[in-house]
Amino acid sequence: MKKEASQDSLINLILPLALILGLVLLLSLNVEAGGQSRETTPLETWLKVIVGYLAAGTEIAAAVVIGGAVIRGISTYLRLLFSRSKQHFDATEAIRLQLGRVLALGLEFTVASDILRTAVAPTRQDILNLGAIVLLRTLLNYFLEREIQQGEQRRSSEPELDRSIR
């Protein structure tokens, strides 16, 4: 049992470090085209326009999802703040977990937007930039998911503690 726990903690340490190292390496690479200009076809031009609109729509969707969750979280918190409830801490933890889940979803939308922007005739530099952005957002998502899991574990263990005290 202790061996599994030590392996899990080792993985939880190595994975973020590897992602950070990969991000630093991608950001340090700078590939220049060497002055080669490539002609674009009319189809490619139209595809870029269409994909640009799709990417903008995806970014708007991410903003709406995250903005809606923030407004909902603030309204729930204010309602709780002005009520005379004794469960203030537990409810703020629930608000935090809900907001974390929505932020993870918003990050997925922004990654999709970046992938769409790079989908039509990408250069090497575009692909490297996309890799760096995806790595950074994956790293943020990883830590966010870990925080959500820890918060849910705390919430699930608290009722057991409350029952044992009564």
Rank of each mutant, 00 (worst) to 15 (best):
F89C: 08
V120R: 02
I66D: 05
I66R: 02
E32Y: 09
V102D: 00
V70K: 04
D90Q: 13
Y53G: 08
I71D: 02
T118A: 13
T76Q: 15
I133W: 04
L21E: 01
L23C: 04
V24F: 13
E152G: 03
M1K: 11
A69N: 01
D162V: 15
L54V: 11
F82L: 10
A132L: 06
L13A: 09
L105A: 10
E145M: 12
L130A: 03
T76E: 12
E160G: 06
F89R: 14
F89S: 15
G151K: 03
K48N: 09
I14D: 01
Q125R: 11
G35C: 00
E4C: 11
V24C: 09
T76P: 00
E4M: 15
K2F: 14
A119H: 00
I20A: 11
D8L: 15
I115N: 00
E4W: 15
Y142Q: 05
Q125Y: 00
N141R: 05
H88K: 15
S85I: 06
Q7F: 15
L130T: 02
R72D: 12
A18H: 07
L13V: 07
A121Q: 14
L19N: 01
L17D: 01
F109M: 04
R84Y: 10
L97M: 07
I127F: 07
V31R: 13
